[in-house]
Amino acid sequence: MSTLSSAWSWLTSSANWSGSDGITHRITQHIFLTVVCLALSCLIALPVAVVLGHIGKGGALAVNLSNVGRAVPTFAVLVLLLLTPLGRHGDWPTIIALVLFAVPPLLTNAYVGMREVDQDVVRAARGMGMTGRQLLFRVELPLASPLILTGMRIAAVQLVATATLAALAGGGGLGRIITAGFNLASTPQVVAGALLVAVFALLVEVLFVIGQRLAPAWARGGTE
């Protein structure tokens, strides 16, 4: 039997879907970790990018600094955090490492989206007497939203793939299926875990694309 066939047999076995080590529980953990990290990353990156993009100062420095962070492997950050006192606080080392990993695409896309807003439109809005707050929320954010949503999609897909590292820190998620497969020298289980992560990432990508297409016109950079 080929490896893929064996992996499929492993995936379709009902015994592997139940229990604390089952696929259902691991997927739930993976979704929770991804959502929490994405939400925290958005809370950190988006306000900074939007404000800097609006005022047009300091944004390039912030983007460059965040992009420098991409050169540091998430695994290395996770290991360093585990060696600190923070390593005794459950999933926090994993969450912090993943948040640092997700911030750069969110910050970069949001800032670029704000700066690429048509300045003729901005000047026209100012000429109509709009305040800075009105200009931000009624003009700049709606026009920048396609790139902001793209940054969120990129970050979400990257988080799904990278959240497997949680297993190395004793956390949950689909990575535990892969590490358990290595510990048991079970290639089909390793392949099955990798397939689950790949399918999950593709599903997140598709959901974001569908969501953006079904979103109101302002979220697509259009007008109502």
Rank of each mutant, 00 (worst) to 15 (best):
L81P: 13
N109W: 01
L106K: 01
A110Q: 04
R88G: 11
D91V: 13
T94F: 07
E116I: 00
L80T: 03
R88W: 11
T108F: 00
F101N: 06
Y111L: 04
H89C: 01
V79L: 08
L106I: 07
L107A: 05
V117T: 03
V79K: 00
L106R: 00
D118S: 09
R123G: 02
A97C: 04
V121H: 08
L83D: 00
V112A: 06
V112C: 00
D118W: 03
I96S: 09
A124D: 09
L83N: 06
Q119F: 04
R88Y: 08
L78E: 02
D120V: 05
L86S: 06
V99R: 12
G113T: 14
R123H: 15
I96P: 08
A102M: 04
T108W: 02
G90Q: 05
Q119A: 11
E116K: 05
L107H: 04
W92F: 11
P93K: 12
D118I: 05
I95L: 04
V117C: 11
D120Y: 03
V117Q: 13
L106E: 10
L107P: 07
L86K: 10
E116T: 06
L86Y: 08
E116W: 00
P85G: 14
P93S: 11
I95S: 06
L82R: 12
I96Y: 13
V121E: 15
L80I: 06
L81G: 03
V117W: 10
L100G: 12
I96V: 15
H89Y: 15
A102P: 05
I95W: 05
V103L: 03
N109Q: 07
P93W: 09
H89I: 13
A102E: 12
V79H: 00
G90S: 07
L80V: 09
V121I: 14
A97I: 10
D118T: 05
V117A: 13
G87I: 14
A124I: 12
F101P: 05
D91M: 12
I95Y: 08
L78V: 03
V122A: 10
G113E: 10
G113D: 11
L82W: 03
L80N: 02
V122S: 14
R115E: 05
R123I: 01
L98E: 07
P104M: 04
V77T: 04
D118G: 05
G87N: 08
L83S: 06
A76F: 07
P105E: 01
G87T: 12
L86P: 01
R115I: 06
G90E: 10
V122Q: 14
L83W: 02
V117K: 15
E116M: 03
G87C: 14
F101V: 07
T108M: 06
T94C: 14
M114L: 11
L106C: 07
V122E: 15
Y111G: 03
P85K: 08
I95K: 11
P85M: 13
V103I: 15
N109C: 09
T108L: 03
P104S: 03
G87S: 06
A110E: 08
V79E: 00
P85T: 13
D91S: 10
L100V: 14
L81I: 06
T108Q: 07
G113Q: 09
L83C: 01
A124K: 13
V77A: 03
G90A: 12
I95T: 14
L83I: 02
L86N: 11
L82T: 08
L83H: 04
R88S: 15
A110G: 11
A124G: 12
T94H: 03
L86I: 15
R88V: 15
V103W: 00
G87W: 07
A110H: 07
P93I: 12
L80S: 06
